[in-house]
Amino acid sequence: MSIERRRYATGVYVLSLIGAGCVALIVLGEMLGGPDRRVFWQIGGAALGGIFVVYGLILLLLRKMGLLGPRRAER
């Protein structure tokens, strides 16, 4: 595995860990959030946004590693 690919793979691992953390925060927000504790809804919402960003970046890194797309006809 080239150094560059190894760096991307490390990025995917780190992002996956952040994603797992986001899932925990979403659960926390859902369990503790309420009209009088809106800050937990905010935390859950931010974690939801975070997980979208993380998954998007994982897709980007997989693409840069050559594991995803483009379609064969476009190569």
Binding site: F52, V53, G56
Partner: peptide, 20 residues
Amino acid sequence: PATWVLVSLGVITLLAALVP
């Protein structure tokens, strides 16, 4: 592409949560 769909949606959601 899916990457930009997720990142855009994520950034907007993050902003909405952090700067309501």
